[in-house]
Amino acid sequence: MGNGKQTILELDRIVKRYRTKGFFFGAHGQDVIALNEVFIKILRGEIFGLVGESGSGKTTAGRLIVRLEQPDQGKIYLDGRDITGLKGKASKDYSRRVQMIFQDPYQSLNPLLSVFDTISEPLIIHKIGNAEAREDSVWQAMKSVGLSPPHDFAHRYPHQLSGGQRQRVAIAHAMVLKPEFVVADEPTSMLDASMSAQIFNILLEMRRRLKVTFLFITHSLAAARYLCDRIAVMYKGNLMEIGPAEEVLRNPKHPYTQALMDALPKFVHSGGVKRYETLLQAEREVSGYVGCPFFVRCKVARAPKCSREKPPLKKLDDSHSVACFYAEPGIKTRSGGKA
């Protein structure tokens, strides 16, 4: 992506901890760090992918952006303005500009609202237009997500819709306010392949027509490649690798990204995919280390460097950065170092 593009949203060294419950009395348990000093700049008009396994903190990042939760440290900027402390009208205004599409359309839609009511609800909350103008907006939103003819669907309830149709209603619900920024949290993980493809194409079309910026959260590398301009790979709340999607997936530099590539089903993805074998058979045993989060599973890692020090995100070139001591620009990461 060009450097000339403007940043729309910035996560500035965000930290989010969750406190776990301890035993009966006294001290609470250990904190779980969901996001550890995550720094991401998302450019206007791009689709930015956040990739990782469950528990990597990608959904937490999305929830912080739409202000369902507050960060413990760090700031989030939209167009250069800090949004972490917004209140009242400013907060409402923000939620009009930034919307979210949730993972599970079976749970995110209100079963008591018809499709029409679901999609027009945001317009009513934000007092946009009169009844007639609202109706127009709803028809338009429904058409743009492929719920056509809209009159057929308007008076149905969620239980009368298939999973793919529900997710399209959820997208229309998010898009009807014409937001500038949309967080899409695994919008297709509950859907079949052909439904997913429809949803992907709807998102691409939205971006083309409405110039919306997307944060696309996914665990599927193939989906990230199809949709995203840039991706960031996360592991246990840490940013491991960030760069143009095609570049990162064709030439992954972080051992964790390489391990993800290795884990893809082999038969379909076999042609031309390199094997990296960077994952240890069994996890390395360590006590109270503070180093690289991937140290316990990484074949390339070397003690004591990797176990004592957390590798910073280092730039390999203009757009591609990796948090690994042993990643070199252009050269494959060392394989088979001893611990």
């Binding site: 052909s194 997913s196 493809a197 429809q198 992907f200 199809y226 993805h269 031309g272």
Partner: peptide, 30 residues
């Protein structure tokens, strides 16, 4: 089945699936 799919549905299913290798082709939903 994978290298020479015959049924139009099989073909459609295969082309609605994003892959990591080869050219980035437009996905064709059914």
């Amino acid at each position: 089945v994978f290298e020479s799919p015959m049924h139009p549905y099989t073909k459609a299913l295969l082309s609605s699936y994003p892959t990591l290798t080869g050219e980035k082709a437009q996905l064709m939903p059914i």
